[in-house]
Amino acid sequence: MISVEEIRKLASLARIKLTKDEEEKLSKDMGNILAYIEQIQEVSATVEESEKPLLRNVMRDDAEPHQAGIHTEALLAEAPKREENYVKVKKIL
């Protein structure tokens, strides 16, 4: 079990609003799931840090930008609120 207190703290970190019923259901479900995944702690073998992996992050040069503004309208058309060429949000500070 994870306490309802803990669930509330996690929900606030995850930016999710939960109902009281959901808090209780999640405290039970998450407790069960965590008890299940706990079995990975049995594995004690150490893993050698292998050489360079086959798949790795590849950086690209920050060059050849596209022409300014050509995607603006398409992207902003999806924004819930806009003001001219800006995405509009409520006051932050």
Binding site: I7, L10, I16, L26
Partner: peptide
Amino acid sequence: RRRIMLGTYVLS
């Protein structure tokens, strides 16, 4: 939501 909550937990 369940997975987001679990993930937030295991990464905390």
